[in-house]
Nucleic acid binder design. Sequence first.
RNA 1: GCAGCAGGCUGUUCCAUCGUCCCGUAUCUCGCACAGCGAGGUCGGGAAGGAAAGUCCGGGCAAUGCAGAGCACCAUCCUUCCUAACGGGAAGAUACCCGCGAGGGUAUGGUUAGUGUAACAGAAAAUAACCGUCCUGACGAAAACUGUGGCAAGGUCCGCCUUCGCCAAGGCUUCGGCGGGCAAGGGUGAAAAGGCGGGGUAAGAGCCCACCGGUUCCUGCGGCGACGCGGGAUGCCGUACACCCGAUGGAUUGAAAGACCAUGUAUACCGGCGCUAAGGGCUGCUCGUCCGAUGCCGGGGGGUAGGUCGUAUGAUCACGCCAGCAAUGUCGUGACUAGAUAAAUGAUGGAACCCGACAGAACCCGGCUUACAGGCCGGCUGCAAAU
Length: 131
Amino acid sequence: MEKFHKSERLCSRKTIALLFEKGSIFYTSLFKIVWTAAAGTEEYPARVAFSIPKKSFRKATERNLIRRRIREAYRKNKKILYEALTSAGASVAFIIIYRGQTIPDYLSVEHSMTELLGKLPAEVSKRDSKC
RNA sequence: GCAGCAGGCUGUUCCAUCGUCCCGUAUCUCGCACAGCGAGGUCGGGAAGGAAAGUCCGGGCAAUGCAGAGCACCAUCCUUCCUAACGGGAAGAUACCCGCGAGGGUAUGGUUAGUGUAACAGAAAAUAACCGUCCUGACGAAAACUGUGGCAAGGUCCGCCUUCGCCAAGGCUUCGGCGGGCAAGGGUGAAAAGGCGGGGUAAGAGCCCACCGGUUCCUGCGGCGACGCGGGAUGCCGUACACCCGAUGGAUUGAAAGACCAUGUAUACCGGCGCUAAGGGCUGCUCGUCCGAUGCCGGGGGGUAGGUCGUAUGAUCACGCCAGCAAUGUCGUGACUAGAUAAAUGAUGGAACCCGACAGAACCCGGCUUACAGGCCGGCUGCAAAU
């Protein structure tokens, strides 16, 4: 199923603040990702939040449109991430921040999203091996 | 028909699949401490705007706080009405400006009192004088004219008369600079010393007079009123803005307000001792008055994360009747119309057309302002044509 529950989203303001303080960062063509390893007690292996900077997009309608497209792309493709994470036995919390300066169409968002979701488990295992 | 004026309404639609938030006294499954609660599914219903925006006014709601006096500050300012209230709205008043017109825009408490300012231009922005105009002034120059007196020559009826003649002083004219009068005309300006005509004068001027416009006072009628239409007297009269004077209003914070539950620890709060200095107390300052840090002792409840309420039945919306020019109000009937809390409307495929503007709720209302593709409705004006 391609649902998107509340428990899959990042809801706590405290963990978001913590992420920006201590999280690891990597980039894809459209996004900046801030992530950290999670406790692993949750129902789902990942919790996510989306952010579009107010600096680039002054109008609320524009930010809404971009966030909805990103979220839709995540919802449709999250199973790639989930499979990789459950097989590795890891769980993460992360924020996707949009980097572009123009409003993207859905196809380019989806393309960049699959790139991101492939990259994130690799980053996680890379850090695990370091430690 | 074309061009325009003011106003009102509207703000892409449909189908399929997947997904988000909320609601349900619909239903199924699972868990637990099992008349219940929680999680998930299925079914049904609902899910952004006319400006949701700017946060510019006015309220509601909430917390804190409030002896008083003086001075200052800010906002508002024609009238009547509407409204919970407003700096908003409706209907009007007066003046000026724009438009052929339908109409539109701007201004508005008081002050013939006082003070200040008035860019640029202009002579001058208020004890006016550049050009101009005049000489009731003195002086100089010029040449023509005029009469008077004297001289000369000539004539003579011996009274005087005549002269392109000469001299003297004057008149008049013109010019020059000096001095003075004037506020008519010109030009400048947002604004130029009430307007216009006559008398008057050297020339002029409210200097005087008639009419007109205004000021102040008295007064009749109409209007709830701002005011309007008149009558009488007075007097000779600049404009704008600010200060000024008056009336009314002004506590602060803002839903991250605030209330509660649960959890179990920095120190709010109270009392005493001590200290009385900073500081705080309804916009600011001063006076006055009240409180009063730190420290010590005792009492005592709270930080952070989470949840519930606040939080959507309201100055609500729709329709109708009545009252009113209208804003709006009374009454009746019906409706329930987003409620999130890192924050909900999207994606994909297809179809239609005029190919979709400005733009996203965050405590809630009433306004104002700003942004905006297009479409619809009736009313009115001008022009053209027809009758």
